[in-house]
C-alpha cells in the first residue's frame, strides 16, 4: 500500500470532514483511490482538491469512512491508486451538478466560467456552496435553497448554453438529469458510483452493461450512458444479486 501523512483535517459539518495530505501521484479530477483502514475495510474516495496538498471530502457512513474522517495531523493514510478514467476538463461555460458530497469530486473543475447546481435531502447535505460564484441550491425538504430535486433546478435555466455539463451523485439522480437532457449531444459527463471491491476491473461488482465503473469509469459520457440499459434501472448488490435501483 502507498502511504501519506495527514497534514490537516477540517470538519465541514456534523458528518463530513476534509482531509489534506501531500501526494506526488499524478491525479486528475474524477479519479479515486482505494483508501485502506487496516483491519477494518477499504473504500473508494475521490478528490475535492488536487493542488500541492490533495484533499478528500468524506461523509461518514460506516466504520472505514468514520476512521478516515477522523484522521488527525500526523496520522498515516494508506491507499492504492489513483484509479479510473477522469473527467475531461474542457474550456468554456461549465455546469457542475452535484448531489450532497457528490459535488466534492467536481470542485477541482471549478473556474470563473462554472455554474453550480447543488442538491441535497436537507440543508445539512449542502457543502462547498461558497466555492461557487454562480449557483442554484435545491433541497428535497426546502430547508435550504429552493424545494426540489437537481433536475428541478435545471428546469429553471437554459442548459443548452453550457459547453460542458458535469454531474456526480446517486444513480437515480443522474438518470433523471440525463433524461432531461435533450439537444445536449455529447456535452455531458457523469461520474457513477456502484458498489466497488477490487477497484481494478476484475471483480465485476461495480459493472454496468459490461463496463466496469472502476476502470472504464467512473466518468462516462452522456453518449455512453444512453446505450446502457442498466443505468438507473438495475445493478448487482454486494453479493452479486440483481436489484432494482
Amino acid at each position: 500500500m502507498k502511504t501519506s501523512i495527514i497534514y490537516e483535517n477540517i470538519k465541514l459539518n456534523d458528518n463530513t470532514n476534509i482531509i489534506k495530505f501531500p501526494c506526488n501521484e499524478k491525479i486528475e479530477p474524477g479519479q479515486f483511490i482505494m483508501a485502506w483502514v487496516p483491519g477494518i475495510n477499504e473504500i473508494p474516495l475521490s478528490f475535492s482538491g488536487l493542488n500541492d496538498l490533495k484533499e478528500i471530502t468524506i461523509k461518514i457512513y460506516g466504520k472505514a469512512s468514520e476512521h478516515i474522517a477522523h484522521l488527525k495531523k500526523g496520522d498515516t493514510v494508506f491507499f492504492r491508486g489513483p484509479y479510473g478514467k477522469p473527467f475531461e476538463n474542457t474550456a468554456g461555460k461549465k455546469l457542475l451538478i452535484g448531489a450532497g458530497t457528490g459535488i466534492a469530486s467536481l470542485v477541482p473543475l471549478i473556474d470563473k466560467n462554472a455554474y453550480g447546481v447543488l442538491s441535497g435531502k436537507t440543508g445539512n447535505d449542502i457543502v462547498f456552496q461558497d466555492r461557487f460564484e454562480k449557483k442554484s441550491i435545491v433541497t428535497d425538504d426546502g430547508s435550504y435553497g429552493k424545494k426540489g430535486y437537481a433536475v428541478d433546478a435545471l428546469k429553471d435555466m437554459d442548459i443548452s448554453e453550457f459547453d460542458m455539463i458535469y454531474a456526480c451523485g446517486p444513480e437515480i439522480m443522474l438518470k433523471s438529469v440525463m433524461d432531461y437532457m435533450v439537444n445536449i449531444n455529447d456535452r455531458a459527463q457523469f461520474s457513477l458510483e456502484r458498489p466497488m471491491k477490487c477497484g481494478i476491473g476484475i471483480c465485476d461488482s461495480c459493472s454496468i452493461n459490461g463496463y466496469q465503473v472502476c476502470t472504464d469509469g467512473p466518468v462516462f459520457s452522456l453518449k455512453q450512458l444512453m446505450g446502457m440499459s442498466e443505468f438507473g434501472s438495475t445493478r448487482l448488490n454486494y453479493s452479486g444479486k440483481r436489484i432494482k435501483i
Binding site: I200, S239, G240
Partner: peptide
C-alpha cells in the same frame, strides 16, 4: 456476501484475492 475489502492484493507478478465466494 463474501468478505469485506481489501479483497485483492496486487503486486505484479503476484496477485492474491479473497472475495469469499460472494454470489447471489
Amino acid at each position: 456476501r463474501g468478505y469485506e475489502p481489501p479483497v485483492v492484493y496486487e503486486n505484479d507478478p503476484v496477485f492474491i484475492n479473497a472475495i469469499g465466494l460472494s454470489n447471489p
